[in-house]
Simulated scan of single mutants.
Amino acid sequence: MFRQIGAMEIILILGVLVLLFGAKKLPELARGSGRALRIFKSETKGLMDDEDDKTTTTTRVVEEKPVALPSDVVQPTRPTSYDKHPDTP
């Protein structure tokens, strides 16, 4: 029913593309499709890596940072400009 695509069919397809898009647009279309394929490949590889990370169990040590308590806050020793009331000089 279906046969292999030969050289004549490829030439015919390229001829139709040149007629539809013009010779100047074809390199831009090829460049854009190449970028899209690279992005697609990197994204699928990233998804595969994420799945591998989920299946591999790793133990992470989380370092806890101390929480500042109100008694730990240092008060300024001299008055600042925002401490002055507008009525005082």
Rank of each mutant, 00 (worst) to 15 (best):
Val16Ile: 06
Pro76Ser: 12
Val16Asn: 05
Arg3Thr: 03
Arg38Glu: 14
Val67Cys: 10
Lys41Cys: 02
Val74Met: 12
Ala68Gln: 10
Leu12Met: 07
Gly32Asp: 11
Val73Phe: 02
Ile11Asp: 07
Pro70Ala: 02
Arg78Asn: 05
Gly34Gln: 06
Pro76Phe: 05
Ala7Asn: 11
Ile39Cys: 01
Ile11Phe: 01
Leu14Ser: 02
Arg31Pro: 00
Phe2Met: 04
Thr57Gly: 09
Thr88Phe: 07
Asp72Asn: 05
Pro79Arg: 13
Gly32His: 04
Gly32Lys: 09
Ile11Thr: 06
Arg35Asp: 13
Ile39Asn: 05
Glu28Lys: 11
Leu29Pro: 00
Thr80Ile: 08
Lys24Phe: 09
Pro70Val: 01
Tyr82Trp: 14
Leu12Val: 00
Thr80Val: 12
Met48Ala: 14
Gly6Thr: 05
Arg38Lys: 14
Arg3Ser: 08
Gly46Lys: 06
Glu43Ile: 10
Ala23Gln: 00
Arg35Glu: 06
Val16Ser: 07
Lys65Ile: 11
Pro66Trp: 14
Leu37Lys: 08
Ile39Val: 08
Glu64Ala: 13
Ser33Leu: 13
Ala36Pro: 00
Lys65Leu: 15
Ala7Gln: 09
Asp53Arg: 15
Glu43His: 13
Glu28Tyr: 12
Ala23Leu: 03
Val18His: 03
Ser71Val: 13
Gln4Asn: 05
Pro27Arg: 05
Asp49Ser: 08
Leu12Thr: 07
Gly46Arg: 10
Ser81Arg: 14
Ile11Glu: 13
Lys54Asn: 12
Ile13Tyr: 07
Arg35Ile: 15
Lys65Glu: 11
Arg3Asp: 08
Glu9Asp: 03
Asp52Val: 08
Asp49Arg: 12
Thr59Glu: 10
Ile10Cys: 01
Lys84Ala: 14
Leu19Tyr: 00
Leu14Glu: 06
Thr80Ala: 15
Ile5Pro: 02
Phe40Lys: 09
Gly6Leu: 03
Val73Glu: 06
Pro86Leu: 04
Lys24Met: 11
Val18Arg: 04
Glu28Gln: 13
Arg60Leu: 15
Thr88Arg: 14
Leu12Phe: 05
Ala7His: 12
Ile10Asn: 01
Pro86Ser: 07
Arg35Tyr: 13
Lys41His: 05
Leu47Arg: 15
Glu64Met: 15
Thr59Asp: 10
Val16Tyr: 04
Asp83Ala: 07
Asp83Thr: 08
Val73Ile: 12
Ser33Cys: 07
Ala30Val: 07
Lys41Glu: 05
Leu37Gly: 03
Gly6Phe: 13
Val73Cys: 08
Ile11His: 01
Lys84His: 10
Thr57His: 04
Leu69Thr: 15
Pro76His: 12
Ala23Pro: 04
Gly22Cys: 01
Lys45His: 04
Ile13Pro: 00
Leu37Pro: 00
Glu64Gly: 14
Ile11Tyr: 05
Tyr82Thr: 02
His85Met: 11
Thr80Met: 15
Thr58Ser: 02
Lys54Glu: 11
Val61Trp: 10
Ser42Met: 09
Gly22Thr: 03
Met8Asp: 10
Pro89Ala: 10
Pro70Gly: 01
Phe21Ile: 00
Val16Asp: 09
Leu14Pro: 01
Gln4His: 12
Glu51Cys: 03
Leu20Arg: 01
Glu28Gly: 11
Asp87Cys: 07
Thr57Asp: 09
Lys41Asn: 03
Thr57Ala: 09
Thr44Asn: 14
Ile5Ser: 05
Pro66Phe: 08
